[in-house]
Nucleic acid binder design. Structure first.
Lengths: 298, 298
DNA sequence: GAGTGGATTTCGCAT
DNA sequence: ATGCGAAGTCCACTC
């Protein structure tokens, strides 16, 4: 389990890939291999930093946390502050994953991964008895050099993280915001009712545009997918049949899933982006007002 | 040196304060004490995150790096990307350090530190067999909850870091920028000649203002201090004597040290702020040009 | 404390 | 590729 490579304070846990208080030579090897494997590197040590590119900067020696991510992003953090003191945004890492079907009956399919290098590339080498990690990027042309003379911890991580991240306001918040500020949906949009019962269920907001057309608004708090479009289409069709009038359908959501946009256009429905931030701002102003009051006023 | 508290994979290095693959109970104690001591915490583990405030967000489970800094800044980083997926900017930590003079002859002065809590406060507790780290902030009101069910590494760091950070454009960059765009110094400023740097750190440019007065420009790539003002004053005085004409002196730098501004005004010199960013932008258009070429054109 | 503008802004979506 | 606008922008400075 433990594999103490050398030195009195050095500990290497192979399974977790952590070096504690390593000699600089061990750290060098460890870091180089970590970068080659495109893992996440987590480094704590005494270093100075030079940046050259869109501007220039120099950071005198001190103990910092350095993170190198799978996409080549480089972050250098001090003991305070939200922002990194130095950094390099690394992007455009594309993993082309291709499944190669096995010809054997009970054999697993192979997976071929073509890895495309990130915008940001790294060079690791000793210089003046210090370990230099040099990150270079084209477009814009810039470079960050980190010089270590002491490592407290070096860790190579394979972070397993497929968890979805969703940013949203609650659907009720979005509804409130739209009723308080109908122009969020469209200029001169006039809400008539909300949570109106229609055949298949309830319409989120129901109103009229400046031409006098009926408008059905469907609200989704997160990225709108196919099901949101179909739901809206159902309401629009139902109201068209009931009223025998022109009815527009507008899908309001923070954003819309790739490809769903074309489906939406095909059946002549519309999309209006509405960010959670904007909803929160609108609600700030009318926090105390009750949902019902919006209509009593009119 | 090694102190394996429990579990097969757990290692605790007291001196470096690192827990590797700890049980959740150990991690809890460790993290709570780390936060109380206002140290930097470095955590790697499986977690999900909920944010509520200016907007709302939910991050499904996955392995991430979590950093809590001395000022209460909270960063949650995934395996890619420059930006944290969730965060809390922690600021306003003020250490009031007061030196209490010792009355004894050969005794050290005492230092009294009044610590003012950061805007962001933390609560650590078990919830549903997970460790919840709850960060709360007022103004704006927001909260981040991180739920851990597995820790790979927990580290409490006392980062010793007094290294100065300086952001600047090189003096040549700033010189080029001014020659390319003289209005950076002043409207209708006309450069006449430039002088290569005499002492490290600054370069002079000679020119004329729209009134026909001679203008001496001193460039500092970093925050201008007293010495910059005195250097400029020396130049201005020398040229006044030589030419027997009115000479203005303008100090160009990213910014000026506190208090130096008044000194500058006292001896009737001027200051013009010029950010490295602005220089970089100007130079974007004329990156390859030699310094001399700015005059050949005219 | 609120408002304003800059940033080594970054990031995403449009053309 | 390029350009434009939003961001849980952050951050520093002014009023």
């Amino acid at each position: 389990m433990l594999n103490c490579l050398s030195g009195t304070n050095c500990v290497c846990l192979k399974m977790t890939n952590i070096l504690v208080e390593p000699h600089i030579d061990e750290a060098e090897d460890f870091i180089r291999r970590g970068i080659q494997k495109h893992n996440v590197l987590l480094i704590v040590g005494n270093c100075c930093v030079e940046y050259e590119g869109r501007a220039s900067s120099k950071l005198e020696p001190g103990e910092r946390i350095v993170i190198i991510k799978e996409d080549g992003a480089l972050l250098i953090h001090r003991s305070t502050g939200y922002e990194p003191v130095n950094w390099m945004p690394g992007g455009n890492v594309v993993y082309h994953v291709r499944t190669i079907k096995s010809k054997e009956e009970n054999s697993r399919d192979r997976i071929s991964v073509n890895w495309q290098p990130p915008d940001c590339i790294f060079h690791v080498q000793m210089e003046d008895k210090m370990l230099k990690i040099h990150a270079v990027r084209r477009k814009p042309t810039e470079s960050v050099k980190v010089f270590f003379d002491k490592f407290h911890m070096v860790s190579v991580l394979s972070l397993v993280d497929s968890g979805e991240f969703a940013l949203y306001a609650t659907e009720e918040d979005m509804q409130k915001a739209i009723l308080a500020e109908p122009s969020l949906v469209e200029e001169e949009f006039k809400p008539i009712s909300y949570e109106r019962k229609v055949e298949p269920g309830f319409v989120d907001v129901y109103g009229m545009d400046k031409e006098g057309n009926l408008v059905v608004v469907e609200i989704k708090r997160k990225t709108a997918g196919n099901e949101a479009v179909l739901q809206l289409a159902k309401y629009v069709d139902a109201i068209r049949e009931n009223t025998n009038r022109d009815v527009r359908g507008i899908l309001v959501a923070p954003n819309i899933a790739k490809g769903v946009q074309t489906l939406l256009a095909t059946i002549k429905l519309e999309f209006k982006a509405l960010s959670p931030r904007k909803c929160a701002k609108i609600l700030e102003k009318s926090r105390t007002r009750k949902l019902e009051s919006f209509f009593k006023e009119k």
